[in-house]
């Protein structure tokens, strides 16, 4: 049983941060609790943020897609704004995270803030250039999701609150797909790869390749991205694709553990990157489908 002295409930972001700082003792935010109730982190109190007004999903006037930190994964699966953005890649990733009942309460913010190398929402959000919004008691700050993760289980937050992430409107038309490699249908990622390509005029204008579970933090494979950027689609031969995939594999830094060896993980980065890029390029229109299946 989790030894906890107090369960506080916040009704807005500033109050959440204030309740967090009030003491006595050590506190932590809690959203769905689907990580925390397994891990029972040592703390004296928690601050529940489910009613802090940060659970909405919205399209801003500028076309950005805003995902409130306390939005549940199930909300992301079904929400029309999300299914309609970048081919529904975020919905697809959410639908593969956890099992059905867990998704009812697990939040996107909790997934990112827990900051596991295998956090399943991270790759697709990284690939779609997400920006994080962070609240302090009296100000908000934003920064790219790439800068959010500091190390395994560590983010820039300290005792601040993640309010949500925004995906820029430009990405709405990108072709994006991710693949989660697992042992069984419902499992933690052994490797996850997400690819987003902004294609225009027969040319890859923008390329993003994001990797999960193969480095201390979810990461972007920027060298491989650079290789793709500006390329004419017609010029991307299987050989070129092989090189891009190999470079992405070279960029990651996987671990050996009881789930998979580093060697296997690295090779899978290569296989999945190649398959996703190939699939996205050979595909026009609906690219929401799980890329590598």
């Amino acid at each position: 049983m989790w030894k906890l002295q107090e369960y506080r409930i916040a009704t807005n972001p500033a109050e959440a941060v204030a309740l967090m700082r009030k003491g006595p003792g050590k506190g932590a935010y809690i959203a769905g609790g689907t990580d925390m109730l397994l891990e029972h982190p040592a703390c004296d109190f928690v601050v529940d943020i489910n009613r802090a007004g940060i659970g909405d999903v919205a399209r801003t006037p500028g076309g950005d897609l805003f995902l409130g930190a306390a939005a549940t994964l199930q909300e992301l699966v079904g929400n029309e704004f999300v299914t309609g953005f970048a081919g529904g890649a975020v919905s697809m990733a959410a639908s593969q995270c956890g099992n059905r009942p867990v998704r009812s309460t697990a939040t996107v913010g909790g997934n990112l803030c827990n900051a596991l190398p295998s956090a399943d929402m991270a790759p697709v959000l990284l690939a779609l250039d997400a920006t994080c919004y962070i609240a302090d008691e009296d100000y908000q700050e934003s920064l790219p999701l790439t800068d959010f993760f500091v190390g395994p289980r560590l983010t820039v937050l300290e005792d601040r609150l993640l309010v949500g992430v925004a995906l820029p409107g430009e990405c709405a038309g990108w072709r994006c797909a991710s693949h989660k490699l697992t042992r069984t249908a419902e499992d933690i990622s052994l490797v996850q790869v997400a690819v987003a390509l902004g294609v225009d005029d027969g040319r890859i204008q923008e390329a993003r390749i994001a990797l999960g579970a193969v480095a201390p933090v979810p990461m972007r494979a920027s060298l491989a991205e650079t290789m793709l950027t500006g390329q004419e689609i017609a010029a991307i031969t299987p050989d070129v694709m092989g090189d891009v995939a190999a470079i992405a594999a070279g960029e990651c830094d996987p671990l050996d553990d009881h789930r998979a060896s580093a060697e296997y993980r690295r090779d899978m980065v290569s296989v999945l990157t190649r398959r996703l890029v190939t699939r996205i390029l050979s595909d026009d229109g609906d690219n929401s489908q799980d890329g590598a299946a």
Binding site: Y7, I9, I30, G32, G33, T34, L37, L38, V46, D48, N50, Q74, N99, R100, P101, V102, S104, T105
Partner: peptide, 20 residues
């Protein structure tokens, strides 16, 4: 599994205090 506001949840990973 139970329903929380109509949604299925696994009640072992839901804090009791939350269902207030």
């Amino acid at each position: 599994t139970v329903l929380l506001d109509g949604q299925p949840v696994n009640s072992c990973v839901v804090p009791a205090a939350r269902v207030n």
